[in-house]
């Protein structure tokens, strides 16, 4: 039975309110960036992500504060426990770095505010992305099948960011299929225009799949099932797709694995 992630609601942000400025000769023009500061932009447009960010920062800060206060006690001992105090400081440094990484990841969200829109063929973007991972696919024994529709594949989109989305989805799919036996490693990418005016892209894997609880949090920022992962990949995808005026969601395949689908308004 297929289940949906809980993000199959309206897009996170409305269609970009900026006017489309595509010159007649097909060349693009950069959209004016919003001149608002980071914090107001985050809290107003994405209060949920801000809360997740705040929580993510509280963890390393808690560790830093407690480690520092512990180090003080350790140095006050008679004799001082220098070894443990040093370990404490090393941990503080590690956590400060962790915090920096979290903030760096955050900047990716900020970057999605400015879209470089051009008229493009989504099928080309798919092919480019698959081209990038072709070697990996061969090495990992993944069979890639493309079902690319010829009906209205033209959309307005940011080529680089959409490629980023597809790359993310394809990489996740590869990871999901790590644990699966060789014959089962199949990745299918589809583009279609079942609904006029909307282009749908589907990335289907036959990997491990995920449980109910993970499904519900798949697109949450900072949610990850990978050790050492930061959990921003899918949240970033959602951010990019939303900025394009589309939606993204996940469905569990009847047999095994996940299908991540997203829509883009067609020309």
């Amino acid at each position: 039975m297929a289940t949906h992630s809980d993000d199959s609601h309206a897009p996170q942000s409305p269609m970009p309110r900026r006017k489309r400025a595509i010159r007649r000769d097909g060349k693009h023009r950069r959209m004016p960036e919003e001149s608002v500061g980071l914090l107001p932009q985050l809290t107003a447009n994405r209060p949920w992500e801000f809360a997740a960010l705040a929580h993510e920062l509280k963890q390393p800060l808690t560790a830093i504060l407690s480690n520092a206060q512990a180090a003080r006690h350790l140095l006050d001992l008679d004799p001082p426990d220098l070894q443990e105090a040093r370990t404490s400081l090393a941990d503080i440094i590690a956590d400060a770095r962790r915090t920096t990484e979290v903030l760096r990841g955050l900047q990716a969200f900020v970057a999605t505010g400015a879209l470089d829109l051009t008229l493009l063929n989504i099928n080309d973007v798919v092919r480019e992305t698959i081209g990038l991972v072709h070697n990996n696919a061969t090495a990992q024994g993944v069979m890639i099948t493309l079902h690319l529709s010829d009906d209205f594949p033209l959309i307005y989109g940011d080529r680089i960011q959409l490629r980023q989305v597809l790359l993310n989805l394809v990489r996740n799919a590869f990871e999901a299929m790590h644990q699966v036996e060789d014959e089962g490693r199949a990745l299918i990418v589809r583009t279609s225009s079942a609904t006029p005016g909307i282009m749908t892209v589907e990335v289907e894997d036959h990997g491990m799949g995920v449980d109910e609880m993970t499904m519900a949090r798949l697109f949450h920022p900072f949610f990850t099932t990978k050790s050492g992962g930061m959990g921003l990949g899918l949240a970033l995808c959602r951010s990019i797709i939303a900025a394009h005026g589309g939606w993204i969601w996940a469905t569990q395949n009847p047999d095994r694995g996940l299908t991540i689908s997203f829509t883009l308004p067609a020309v």
Binding site: Q59, P60, T62, A63, I64, L65, S66, N67, Q69, A70, H73, L74, L77, D81, E84, T87, S88, D91, A94, D95, R98
Partner: peptide, 16 residues
Amino acid sequence: DDASVRCALARLIRSI
């Protein structure tokens, strides 16, 4: 569930 928080809290509590 956060390893560094666990470790830091333990260190603090032990230190007193």
